[in-house]
Nucleic acid binder design. Structure first.
Length: 549
RNA sequence: GGGCCGUUAGCUCAGUCGGCAGAGCACCGGACUUUUAAUCCGGGUGUCCAGGGUUCGAGCCCCUGACGGCCCA
């Protein structure tokens, strides 16, 4: 896409023309009296009560989304965040401002002052007496009938997606309402919303790889949080009996249709509660939020009707694996034995997989796809869960559950471990497992957290909910990037070429007649791994040749 | 990981047998005082995803690669 195409140049000329006429194309303010929704409501009321049309004066603002010009009269469609409405331009009514039409394009922001009327066809309309340019657009909007379809462009230029696709806009409004409803629900149950640090000395609280960053003044390596768990528990220890945090979590993993490296979670902790209390919290939360936002607990997702009404099914994890994979994990408590059973089932496993990871694979491959209607998978092996309390009377298991809807994990919760000695031992087990299974992610020992637990921690029920997953469910979307406004994407081809050309220019500046091949090697050394993997030798040589001329 | 499909104008998309690159919207010029995707007349604005090959000639055929979509694992 060229930066200065025909559209840009023509519109830039109009900006200059307006300035020559003494009109600011980007004024600082405008005296709007009504939103479009308010103006429409007002007109409806006035018409009912028979208020004379000449008194019905308002000023409204919005983006110009359509122009029907008929010479001495023109109709414009105006849209603001509340709705859209037609404005009428008449030369005999407007005088000089009618000339603004010549400098007007689709996508511009406009203020219109005049009477509210119905036209001959009954369309609610602002009959403009004056019109004011509020913000000139230099790029044309996408095609008005089909909207923007190109997936890459929709995600890379979400604003264009939002401008042209109403259902996308509605989806993000829904997501925002979802978060607000969750917040109201938690507040209503006397949970205190808190904010805990994103930059940490130790990335603990989950099994995930962190992003690493640098604090210059302290000259210290910091990690972006992979969970909010440990700090929220420290709040509980401090006597804040019910706390929650809605915030961004960062995990340094691959990105695909269901994973964005940053995502939003809601974690909550409640003193004196256990995981049974949290199960009822979750099913009540989800069903009441669904009723509030959608008017029903029945969600349509992937061609199925899913009823999130409480109570949700409880399914013991070991029994679930027994039912769907026909393997008894209690009969195969070591990795070699379990791996052998799984291979016989056709599940891909490796020599390096830990026992916990094998169970995780079984869940992902055999169990999760069956959990379409809301289900709590209950009681997890201790190996997989260093922060949960052991289940009394059941060796090797902890009080943990995960909630599944439509085959997706939507939450994870425990009766929290509050014994500091056992907690230290469990962290140490994680560290040992890391040494044994270098390719897997395990939790890390956090001394500050252990110190906190040593001050005494009440029995506690904790919860983590994936907000993005819930947004997917509520909006019927199968990919996370359709519910994240600005998802991370791999570089576009344009961006790759731009990075390559920049590197070539740098290398050529310091070069002294090396061969093309030698230059290509130098360029490759300076390029990032991602760019290198995206550029072929032929393409690189061709670009060096072009740059050299 | 495997298979199939796709990438062409600002946007949405056609492109037959390998022979001058097309339509609608948008845009530019003109007409029009009641339109609703306004209408009518005139104008086609292009790195056909990238690189290489075959050919007198490639959007189309062949190879390699990138990205995306769908299906399967």
């Amino acid at each position: 896409m060229t930066e200065r195409d025909e559209y840009f140049l023509i519109r830039a000329e109009k900006v200059e023309r307006l300035r020559e006429q003494g009109i600011d194309p980007f004024p600082a303010r405008y005296g709007r009296t009504h939103t479009i929704a308010a103006a429409r409501a007002l007109l409806a009321r006035w018409s009912e009560r028979g208020r004379p049309a000449r008194e019905r004066s308002v000023s409204v603002t919005g983006r110009v989304t359509g122009v029907r010009n008929m010479g001495r009269v023109a109709f414009l469609d105006l849209r603001d965040g509340t709705g859209s409405m037609q404005a009428q331009f008449r030369r005999d009514v407007m005088g000089g401002d009618f000339e603004l039409l010549k400098s007007l394009d689709l996508g511009d922001f406009l203020g219109v002052r005049g009477r509210l009327i119905h036209t001959r066809t009954g369309e609610p309309t602002v009959e403009a007496r004056s019109a004011t340019m509020l913000g000139k657009a230099l790029r044309p909007p996408p095609e008005k009938w089909h909207g923007l379809q190109d997936v890459q462009q929709r995600l890379r230029q979400r604003e264009a997606d939002l401008i042209s696709n109403d259902e996308v806009r509605e989806r993000f409004v829904l997501r925002s309402k979802l978060v607000a409803a969750i917040r109201r629900f938690m507040d209503g149950r006397d949970y205190l919303e808190v904010e805990t640090p994103i930059l940490l000395n130790v990335a603990a609280g989950a099994n995930a790889r962190p992003f690493v960053t640098q604090h210059n003044a302290l000259s210290r390596t910091l990690y972006l949080r992979i969970a909010t768990e440990l700090h929220l528990k420290r709040c509980i220890i401090g006597g804040l009996d019910r706390v929650y945090e809605i915030g961004r979590i960062f995990r340094n993993e691959g990105l695909d249709t269901t994973h964005n490296p940053e995502f939003t979670s809601m974690e909550s902790y409640e003193a004196y509660a256990d995981y049974n209390d949290i199960m009822s919290l979750v099913e009540t939360l989800v069903s009441s939020v669904a009723t509030e936002l959608l008017g029903t607990t029945e969600l349509e997702y992937g061609g199925e009707v899913i009823d999130v009404k409480a109570p949700w099914r409880r399914l013991d994890l070991r029994e679930a694996i027994l039912r769907y994979a026909e393997i008894d994990i209690d009969a195969h408590r070591d990795a070699a034995s379990l791996a052998e059973q799984m291979r016989a089932m056709g599940v891909v496993v490796t020599q390096e997989d830990s026992w916990g990871r094998l169970v995780d694979k079984l869940l992902g491959d055999k169990v999760e796809p069956n959990l379409v209607q809301p289900t709590f998978l209950v009681d997890y092996p201790v190996e997989m869960t260093p922060l949960a309390k052991r289940k009394p009377g059941r060796d090797g298991y902890v009080e943990r559950f995960e909630g599944y809807v439509a085959g997706m994990e939507v939450c994870n919760a425990f009766t929290e471990l509050n014994d500091p000695i056992e907690q230290r031992r469990r962290f140490e087990e994680q560290e040992a497992l890391r040494l044994e299974h270098a390719l897997e992610d395990f939790d890390r020992l956090d001394e500050d957290f252990l110190t906190a637990v040593e001050y005494g921690m009440p029995p506690t029920g904790g919860l983590g909910v994936g907000i993005d997953r819930l947004a997917m469910l509520f909006s019927g979307q199968s990919t996370v990037r359709e519910v994240v406004l600005f998802p991370h994407l791999s570089l576009s081809q344009d961006e790759v070429f731009r990075a390559v050309d920049l590197a070539i220019r740098d290398i050529l500046r310091g070069s002294s007649g090396e061969s093309g091949d030698a230059l290509a090697r130098m360029v490759r050394v300076s390029l990032s791994e991602e760019v290198n993997s995206r550029i072929t030798d032929g393409e690189l040589l061709r670009r060096i040749e072009i740059a050299g001329r």
